[in-house]
Each structure stands twice: as C-alpha cells, then as structure tokens.
Design a protein around this nucleic acid. Structure first.
Lengths: 245, 245
DNA sequence: AACGAAGCTGAAAGCCGGCTGAAAATCACA
DNA sequence: TGTGATTTTCAGCCGGCTTTCAGCTTCGTT
C-alpha cells in the first residue's frame, strides 16, 4: 500500500464502521478493509450501529440499506441529527426491485451494489473520503488529488483518465479496475487468486485463468512501451514494478 | 465542486439557515448544500429558526412556508423587522393555493415547490444570492454573471438561454436541468444514479434508465456538432468534457 | 535436450450496457 | 375540455465487453 493511500490520514488511522446483517459479508469486508489499513469496527443491526458509532466515532460508515431493524437511511438520519456529517457508503442489492436506490449519492455519499468487488468498495470509500476531506483541507501541497502514479503511468480516479507516457489509453471497466488494483499494490506480488478476489465480484464462479486474459489485454494497452511495468513472476503471480537491474 | 461556483464568496463561506419540520427533507437539503460548499445550520420550527438566525447571522434562509408554529412568512417578517433584509428561498407544497404563492418572489426572494429536485434548489439559491449581491458588489472583474460556459457551450441562468456554437437551442425543463448539472460538474464522471438524485425530484420512483433517454434527447439538441461534449463512460456514467487527445 | 507446467493470446460465443424510436401517460395551458 | 409539449416506459438493436478455450510459447527442471 502506498503511504497514505488508504486508511491513514496523517498520524491517525481512518476509522470505519461496517454494518451488515450477513456475517459472511461483514467478515469479507472488515478483513480486507483492515488489511488495507483502516481501523474497523462492525455491527450487525441498525441499533447496534448507533451504539458503536457513539463510542467509536467513525470517520465513515459502510452501511447496508437493508437491515432487520433500522434501515440504512434511518441510521444515517439519526447519526447526523447532531449536526456532524458522517459520510456513508451504502451497500444495496442489485436485483431486489431496485426502487430504493434513490438519494444514495447525496452530500458526497455513494453506494455499491451487491454482489460487489472489494476493489470497488475500497475505491468508493477512498473517493468519498477524498471528497469530504477536500472541502476542509487547506489547498496545501500533498493533498490527495485522486491521481495514482507509477513511473510514467497515471490513473485519475475522478476523470478515469489513464495515461502511459503521457498517451491517453481507453480501458474497459474491468481493465480499469485491474490496473487500479495493481497501482494500489505497486511492487507487491499479487497472485491470480488474490487479483480475482479483489477485482471480480465476490460471486464470480469462473476460473482464475481469466486474470491471464486481462493481464494480456492490459499489457497490449498500457505496456507496449519501454520499460515494461507489468511483470510475471512465474508460479507466484504478477507485479507492477520497474524492471530490476 | 467547481471552485467558487457555490457557497464561497471571496474568503468567507456563505451561511445558509435551512428550516423545515420534516427531518428527511432537512437532512437531504443540508447534506447537499454543505457538499456544494455552503455553511449550513438547521432548524425544525419557526421559533427555533429565529433563535438560530439571531446567533448564526445567515446570508440566506431556505424556509418551509408550512411550519407547526410560526409559518415562513411570520419568520421572515420578524427577521426583517430589524431592518436587515435577509433573502429567502421558500419551500412550498405544489398544490398551495395561488394567492399564497403570490408575493413570494418580491424583494429578490424566490420559491421552490415540493417535491423539488436538488438541482432546482441549489440553482434558486445561487440565483437569489447573485441578484442580492449584484446590487452591492462593485462592478469588478469576476462578478458572477450567471452564465455557465464550457467550450462553445453556454447556459445563462438568468434567461435560461442555451447556446451551442453560438446557436440558440430550445430545451425542455428537464433537459435544461440536466445540462445545468453537467455544466456544474464538467469533466467529472457522473453516474446515472447521481444524475437521477440531483436532477429529478426526490420522490421520483422510476428507473435510472430514464437518464439514458434524456442524455439522448440532449445530445440531439446540443451535441450534434464537433467536438462532442457529452461522453459515455461505459459502466461508470457520463461526463461533459472535451474529447481527450 | 526433453519434458511438463505455467503462461500467453487470438478466436468465438454470449452477455450486457447503452442508444433510440415509438407509444403511453401526464402535464401545461389555452 | 382539448391540444400540444413533456415526461416516462419499453422493446429492439448494436456494439463493446466478458468469458471460455485451444493452441502455442516460455520457463524451470531433470
């Protein structure tokens, strides 16, 4: 993880409260959010969420809209009644008669539909934090401008522009998410399974070999100039890095 | 958020007092007004509004006419008794009798009917502030003239004139609001849900696919000349921008 | 040098997101 | 109330995207 890329804000770690009634989802999310550097607390119901929030004072909520007791909206409203504006990333079912997806993007909030990919959730959380912090922050030097860079490669999270050696490249959604994941983990070795688990939605049934296909597509689009940045570590996985001496 | 587009006036942020007795509406409004850069305080009754106004000294009020205790008019009257003319944007039910609505727009005030779209409310607030500030401001350089421009596209917030390449275009209300929202967020990627949440009234029950239809209508009217400005980012949303390199 | 394992890539099928025209429903206004 | 404009839904189409797979190449090992 790039310094300050996720979960850190100066000295103190960013606090997330994750709320979902399915233990599987809760486990999946909290584990990977902790792994990318956030301080995570969880709750399995709306009322529990309110109680935990009171004491934990999270910087952001990841909140299932469909909860057994209070739904996500009610939780949000109660939490903000005190004036403080806690940003929220909502989780919502894609197929379930999607009548409720209104008003989820108000005030800097955002939402992700289930089944999501971890890549997606982390990206949304980071985007929301960036937006809400940008309002408060001084226009100083090292403010997070939402552009990920590695060597002569850059990816703008706001405009979705991707450039290699200054040249703009058009990527499909999956190609974009894959590259995003590689950039966030530059220099690290990522196994195909790992990539699959983060970039593809958690209900994907297919083979991990699809990652090979996408690496191939991505190489053609961004890695045909010197030096090559996407490297295969046979038997282990892939890594975005400068060629070793 | 465009620099200085909303909520900022030189160094100090513009202060809004939002008054409504429905917590949902209050939350909806304050969240999105904060997000576009205003400093927001809220109240749930007429008397509470007077108390907060006393101490907060808002630059403008967003005021529901129908309140449990003092109605919007009474609040306005008392507030202006001291001589200071605080501008007001009233919120009123659509079915309100005609005579109630009359007189709301005198003295630089304006009104919006419920259920409104956020786009609408923000536009009215900005318009009222622009008018009242225009009276006071020096005829300096960067005074807000209420015209949004992007490339050879322009939209006049006062006259509602829209021109592409100098050519005047007639837009329906929704087409106008959609374009307005795109212009305020030029270059940013906006999801269909985001557009729906901001351009359509908050009680809209339908599908986000209606946005596709309106993008199509808008393209036919303003985007049939080179270069195309409305771009689709498959899987992500739309963006008003110049074609990349 | 030969072998097997791992990875690469082009082709192809099917899917899905987005575009558009048409029709229905609703609204604005005379 | 009638008329035209506007809003909303919807189905069919198109094209790009995803996914699979087979054949080939590369690599590591013996």
């Amino acid at each position: 993880m790039t310094a300050g890329a996720s979960g850190r804000d100066g000295g103190r770690r960013t606090r997330l409260l994750v709320v979902d009634d399915e233990p599987t989802i809760l486990e999946l999310l909290s584990a990977s959010l902790r792994f990318v550097g956030f301080e995570v607390r969880t709750a399995e119901s709306g009322t529990a969420a309110l109680a935990v929030a009171e004491e934990f004072q999270p910087d952001l909520l990841v909140l299932d809209v469909m909860l057994p007791d209070l739904d996500g909206f009610a939780v949000t409203r109660r939490l903000r009644a005190g004036g403080a504006h806690v940003p929220v990333v909502f989780l919502t079912a894609r197929d379930a008669t999607e009548d409720k997806i209104t008003g989820l993007t108000i005030g800097g909030d955002d939402y992700v539909t289930k089944p999501f990919s971890l890549e997606e959730v982390v990206a949304r959380i980071r985007a929301v934090l960036r937006r809400t912090n940008a309002d408060l922050a001084e226009p100083g030097e090292d403010r997070d401008d939402g552009v990920l860079r590695f060597a002569d490669l850059e990816l703008d999270e706001d405009t979705h522009d991707v450039r290699r050696a200054g040249r703009l490249v058009r990527l499909s959604p999956t190609e974009y998410k894959l590259l995003h994941y590689l950039l966030l983990n530059a220099d690290k070795v990522l196994s195909k399974a790992q990539i699959l688990d983060h970039v593809w939605r958690y209900d994907f049934a297919g083979d991990a070999r699809i990652v090979e296909s996408y690496i191939s597509l991505l190489r053609r689009k961004i890695d045909t100039v010197d030096p090559p940045l996407i490297h295969t570590l046979r038997g282990f996985g892939y890594s975005l890095r400068l060629p070793r001496a």
